[in-house]
Every structure is written in C-alpha cells, then in structure tokens.
Amino acid sequence: MADEEFDSNKTFLASVERSKQIEADIQVNPQKYRVLTGDRPTGNLHIGHYFGSLQNRVRLAKLGVPTMILIADYQVLTDHDAFDKISQNTKQLVIDYLAAGIEPGENVIIYPHSYIPECNQLMLPFMTLVSNAELSRNPTVKEEIASAGLTNVNAGMYTYPIHQACDILFCKGNVVPVGKDQLPHIELTRNIAKAFNRKFCKNREPVFPLPQALLSKTPSILGLDGSQKMSKSRGNAIFLCSTEDETAYLIKKAKTDSERVITYDPENRPEVANLLMLISLCTKEEPADIAERIGEKGSGELKKVLAEALNEELRPLRQKRAELEKNPDYIRQVLLEGVEKARAIAIKTLDEVREAMNMKI
C-alpha cells in the first residue's frame, strides 16, 4: 500500500471486518490492547465529540483497556492561528474529559504531546521511511487543506500524519478509534511501523506493533445547519459547556424542512433525521418510533423534545464540569501526572529505537 494509491473503499471494508474482530476480543482480553485517542485543543468539545468519541473512551476504560488520551497541541500550529489559546483550550479539554466520566490513573493517561520530547524525536527516523508522494496524496490531508482554505501550505500540514504516527507508535498503541475519514492516517502509521521493523529489526524482535482502526459505531452527526458534519469551526455545534437555555435556543434555530409531519427518512429528510437520531442517542429509542410519536406535531415539537432529551442527558456532565472549573490546580495536576507517565513510556521506546538503529552510546 505504501507505493500504491490509497484505495479507500477496499481499506474501509477490510477495516470494518478487523474492527468487529477487535471489538469482540476486547471484551475478553482488554489488557491485550493499548488505545491511543485524543483531540486537538482548538476549542471546547461539542455533542458530536460526546456521542462519537467520549462515551466510547469511557466504555473502553471501564472494560480495562489501557488508554492514552493525547492532546495534540503541536498539530494546532499546522492550520490554525489560535496558538494564543492553546493552553486555555488544553485545560478545557481535560475538564470535558473528566466531566464525561474519564478517570485518569494507571490505566488512563491524559497528556499534551508537546511535553513528550522523546515521542517527537521519532519524527526524524520516521520521515526517512515515507516518500513525498505518499504525503502529497494523503486524502485526509487534502481535505483538511481545502477545509482550512489554505493557499500557502506549511510543511507541518504535510508531515503531521507522520507526527500522528509518532503519537500512536511511541506508546505502542495497537488500537486507534477513528471514523472512516481517518483511515489513511492509520494506514500510513502501519506502513511506517512495517518499514521500521523491516529495515532495523531484521535480527531482533520488531519494535512496533501494527495499529488497527476501531471504527466508531455512532453515525456521523450533522451540525445544526443540517448540511455538514458538526464542527467547532463551522459554527453549527452545541457545546458541552453550553447552558440548558443556550442549548434550547440553538436547537430552535436548527434547520429542518417544510413538511409538517415528522418522519424518519435519512435519505430524503436528512436534517429531520439528524435531530431524531440525536434524541435516539439520548433516550435509546429508535428514531422511527420517536418520529411516529411526534407525528403531526411538527418540527416545533421535534425541537422541544430534542432540547429536553439533550439537556437531561448532559445535566450530570455539566454539573461536574462546573465543579471542575473551580479547581484549576487539579486540572494541572492531571496533566503533569499524565506527562510523567507518558514520558516514562516514551523514554523506554526511544531507547529501543536507538538500539535497533545502532545509535546507542
């Protein structure tokens, strides 16, 4: 695959099958895996993150899967000018994590990668294992360049998939929860791990595992504009830190359609279907059953039901969030303890890398 055009459909189908197998095995052998997941500190998290990733992280940690939660602060520099808020946003991410039920400890480590120099030292050897052509044709990078509207693309944008490989491999992560759009990054990471092991580990045990994607089961959540994925940058999101009144106000503005009767029809009525799905994620009812119950009461009732369901779902999180906001020393402690644990892992891996490359003195 390293020298071939990325075949998204073929890779996706194979990833779906592998993901099912991993999910089944995790239930039985959670300690066999190490999950690497995380976010860029570009602002507060929204309900798309909550349903799409935070709940899954809590679930995996409770199963006993060792979990590394990365705050990818360096990656903000590739396509954002919000570096003046990185520190503030980093702490807000931790607050969101803890409020959602993530419990840092021996099994769950939260850390920013700018504080793990040993991880970042893997960049140079990894860059020698990837061609310019591979980086240029990465479909996720192309999409992110277009989304950010960049005309002068810095080198960091092209090479951040390599940095992502460093983030995954420094801790020997073998499972990465992702959506379909992130599969090219996982494939590149696997190629780097293969290339390193092939080149430097001919007469010894491989240093790096080949990470697998654990595909999200949550459908893609549209923003309140009804046309694009929910995103901080698009202004179409409901944030976890929003108040109940703000949530209700934003939902009132959500796009639906002109039909009076509410039905669940994702293909022909995507905006209405999206709101029904959000209610379903909160109440665990089937979207079609919710639609039938609302029926002729129309979009006004649909939005009212969603506001009530979402505020009910997020109430405990928001209460805990308010308590954590009052304790910045604890948030800093979580980060510093996470850095200490992550660096210990990184130092050990870098030592193995140096030995494999015959660089130990």
Rank of each mutant, 00 (worst) to 15 (best):
A146W: 00
Q75R: 01
S87A: 13
P125V: 04
T78E: 07
Q75W: 00
F83Y: 14
V153C: 08
D167F: 02
V141L: 03
E118P: 06
N89S: 06
Q92R: 13
G173I: 05
G149M: 11
D96R: 13
V175M: 14
Y115F: 14
P125R: 03
I162G: 03
A148T: 05
E144P: 00
K142L: 00
M157R: 04
I69F: 00
F83G: 12
F170K: 03
M157A: 09
N132G: 13
D181P: 01
A133P: 07
A99G: 12
E144M: 03
T128W: 11
V175R: 08
G101R: 13
L93I: 08
I71M: 05
G179M: 11
T151P: 10
M68P: 00
L150F: 09
S136Q: 12
G179F: 09
A165T: 00
E103Q: 15
L188C: 02
P112C: 07
D81E: 14
S147A: 15
P112F: 06
Q121R: 11
Q182K: 09
V178A: 07
P161S: 06
T140F: 02
L188E: 00
T151L: 12
C166T: 06
V178G: 07
V176E: 01
V141T: 09
D79F: 08
M123T: 05
L183C: 08
V175W: 08
L135M: 09
V108N: 11
T90P: 07
E144V: 02
I109Y: 10
Q164F: 04
H80A: 14
I110L: 12
D79Y: 07
G101Q: 13
D96S: 15
C119K: 00
V178M: 07
L98E: 10
S136E: 11
D167G: 05
E143D: 13
I116H: 04
A133H: 11
S136W: 05
V175Y: 09
N132T: 15
Q88D: 10
P112M: 06
P184S: 05
L150S: 08
I102L: 15
V141G: 02
N120W: 01
A155E: 06
P139K: 01
M68Q: 10
P177E: 07
L188N: 01
D84P: 10
Y160R: 01
G179P: 11
C166L: 06
I168R: 00
T78L: 14
N132Y: 15
P125I: 05
G179Y: 08
P125K: 02
I71G: 03
F83A: 15
S131C: 13
L77F: 13
G179I: 12
T67D: 03
T140N: 02
Y115Q: 14
I145S: 03
N152C: 09
L188S: 01
T140S: 07
G179W: 08
A146P: 01
